[in-house]
Design a protein around this nucleic acid. Structure first.
Lengths: 241, 241
DNA sequence: GTGATACAACCTGTATACAGGCTGGTCTGA
DNA sequence: TCAGACCAGCCTGTATACAGGTTGTATCAC
């Protein structure tokens, strides 16, 4: 593995885990020393993380750990809904590859199994992986590299990703019902794509993203579950410093 | 100006003007010599252009000038329509700042003047600038940095930008009618945002982007007008090498 | 004549040295 | 005591040297 990639991954972990505080300046020499690399790959890694949004350029040069207002995350999730709706619509309009649809259906069965009440902790963990895969397949079904790239950029922020709040949700009451609704969305969108019902497919994915928005609000008022959200430490809550 | 920014701008110009051919490998030493900079800023510029999409990473390392299939541009324009529709909907739902709306209305008047038949060549040039500004204001009206950033990424590709095909359009018959329709969209979307008609605002911007798709098809069958499209040399036409 | 191999040129990834500029603190004078 | 200026440390942007790997070509063997 290249030093650049290694630095990018480790730096991302340090940020998302909260070891590097939001607002903290990331000087190249200090990061380089911490990661045991030279300034060149560290610089490249910082540029990539800035692209992802985890790090923000400082006017006088260099980068600092970024933080996110609740409204921004709101917007990012809604934007994901619109983009995934776009992808679902394209898939329905143009027709999705048979193999992709078949895999989505297989995934639906496995997700049903994972979400059959009572849901164990492992069930949630399994669901996170399966759900992420499902959303990847949806993008694949649209068959557009341009759309895939764009969605990838939004989803790069972990709390904007489809599975961002699922684990935190597990710690909340009534969480099992939310999963049931989410599953229904998944099932219905596959059906809509198969039947070439474009408007329905789009509307479903938009509504689907709304579940994440609701989870966001719930989680923000529960310090314990917020810790379960990857990158949750970067979230600036309303009325906080 | 920094060497990095200078290299980025000049390299972008070289690519969009066709001086660097699509598919051509851009080795750091050769580019550095051409631009009179050292490898470090050239490398940074290449990374940024790769982010924009003008340049594509090569598996074995380094970058090559990218090219675009007609379908990709299709998709990029439709994606822009969806994102601008998203922005228009947000603006209508949440309410746009009064100042922004006022400026959009002022712009409408000036665009009307520029597009009153018969339209001179200067009229088209003026319209390009005014149109670009109008679309920027639409994004501003949505009041979301997340959305603005995302739209900015799509629009970075010149032929996916709102004014990408306007100049080429000037060389085509019936072009004046298209401008009239586009203007009607502009007028209507401002009205929709003012009246908080979210669904209407969104649908209008989607349809608005379709005009660009139609222009794309027209232009692709007219070699002369294709030359007027910035970055047109990067477009791979169907059935071409 | 063709295929495989070896070599040479080149290119990327990385480390590091250097110059210019910014920041923060301290000291001095009013 | 407070304000302003100066100074030192640090940091970024840039240039360049070096090592490892890749590509393309030329040559040799079959």
């Amino acid at each position: 593995m290249s030093q650049t990639l290694s630095a990018q991954l480790r730096l991302r972990d340090l940020i998302l885990s909260g070891e590097l505080q939001p607002g903290e300046r990331l000087s190249e020499p200090s990061v380089a020393e911490r990661l045991g690399a030279s300034r060149t790959p560290v610089r490249a890694a910082l540029v990539r993380l800035a692209e992802e949004g985890l790090v923000k350029p400082i006017p006088s040069g260099g980068f600092a750990v970024n933080s996110f207002a609740e409204e921004e995350i709101h917007d990012a999730i809604e934007l994901r809904g619109t983009l995934e709706g776009h992808a679902a619509r394209l898939a329905a309009e143009r027709g999705a590859p048979g193999g992709t649809l078949a895999e989505m259906r297989r995934l639906l069965v496995r997700m049903d199994e994972a979400t059959t009440p009572p849901i164990s902790e492992d069930g949630f963990t399994d669901y996170v992986a399966l759900n992420a895969h499902f959303h990847e397949l949806l993008v694949e079904a649209a068959g557009s590299a341009v759309v895939a790239r764009q969605i990838g950029r939004v989803v790069a922020l972990p709390f904007a990703s489809p599975s961002g709040f699922v684990l935190a949700q597990a710690a909340l009451p009534a969480s099992q019902c939310v999963l049931v609704v989410a599953q229904e969305h998944h099932r219905a969108v596959v059906e809509a794509i198969e039947h070439r019902e474009a408007a329905r497919a789009e509307a479903l994915m938009r509504e689907h993203a709304r579940l994440a928005r609701r989870n966001l609000e719930l989680v923000l008022h529960d310090q314990d579950s917020l810790r379960l959200v990857r990158g949750g430490v970067l979230i600036r809550r309303r009325g906080w410093a």
